[in-house]
Design a protein around this nucleic acid. Structure first.
Length: 272
DNA sequence: CCCGGAACCTGAAGGC
DNA sequence: TGCCTTCAGGTTCCGG
């Protein structure tokens, strides 16, 4: 599932292949992937434009174009962006093929059809709803404390809320909470300053390690070259169905939080 | 504003 | 073998 480390990897590995390239067309295998305008308009506006930049905001990818258009993409749960250099056949579940000059294609593969693309003029419609970037210098323990203050929702749900912090999802929230020894159902506002400092540190550590491992490929995530990431090999609890705690050996527990499977160690992450 | 649950999707895996 | 249920989950929308 693409979260911040996966989207960051896609961005980094896509950049050398697409910067300076021009759009020569788009082939749709499922038109529902474009959300905010008819696909005909989408295609005609892209045609001939040159890609000048690629940035990540939270889990969003934003491609800047030679006009003032921005091509925004979200991989949601099961999306991949795969580079093809020689007009190879698109893999199963490819929903759109973005054709660039010099023989480069990008396959937007997405088995569950949650992925999305928008063509917009102003990135603020995307960025204004996002909280701070957890790996930026301005994300301090004090900022985290302020975002959690007086919140009654489970800390697990708040970590996954993009307006609280940008880029964290189900896997990395479970990993960060385990590393910090905090129970996923603790109310956000009940965390002590010590716990917030620990959580701030483990959020950054977990995300940085995963970026170093090029993301986690549990299901449906691939790097642009088609290879899987390796971050999931270092997961302690995330997706740990039927497993035991690597620290104390207790059986991991699974509870739904906001209808999302949350794995944790009942001994290392006590509820009070 | 805050919180929780449903809906959108489809394939994999496990139970019987 | 085959059917049924559960699990996977990012985001948005809706009701309280």
């Amino acid at each position: 599932m693409p979260e911040l480390p996966e989207v960051e990897t896609v961005k980094n590995e896509l950049i050398p292949h697409i910067i300076g390239r021009k759009f020569t067309g788009v082939t749709f295998l499922w038109e529902g992937i474009v959300k905010n305008l008819p696909v005909e308009d989408f295609c005609s506006r892209l045609l001939g434009q040159e890609i000048s930049g690629l940035a990540r905001h939270g889990k969003y990818l934003i491609i800047s174009l030679s006009s003032d258009d921005l091509l925004v993409m979200h991989l949601k749960m099961s999306g991949s962006l795969l580079i093809s250099h020689d007009s190879t056949e698109p893999p199963k579940y490819t929903r759109a093929i973005i054709h660039l000059d010099k023989g480069t294609d990008i396959f937007f593969r997405d088995p569950r059809k949650f992925g999305a693309m928008w063509l917009i003029k102003d990135s603020s419609s995307v960025t204004k709803k996002l909280g701070p970037e957890p790996l930026e210098a301005d994300f301090t323990p004090q900022v985290l404390a302020q975002r959690l203050r007086n919140r009654k929702a489970p800390i697990k749900a708040l970590l996954c809320d993009q307006s609280v912090i940008a880029g964290i999802g189900n896997m990395y929230s479970d990993e960060a909470l385990f590393a910090a020894g905090i129970h996923p159902l603790r109310q956000g506002g009940s965390l002590s300053a010590d716990e917030i400092a620990r959580l701030h540190q483990t959020i950054q550590q977990v995300l940085r390690t995963a970026i170093g491992n090029k993301g986690a490929s549990i299901v449906n995530y691939y790097r642009p070259n088609g290879e899987p990431g390796k971050a999931h090999f270092e997961f302690k609890v995330a997706h740990g169905r039927g497993k035991t705690c690597p620290v104390c050996g207790s059986p991991l527990q699974r509870i739904p939080v906001r209808n999302r499977g949350s794995y944790f160690c009942p001994k290392c992450q006590p509820s009070l």
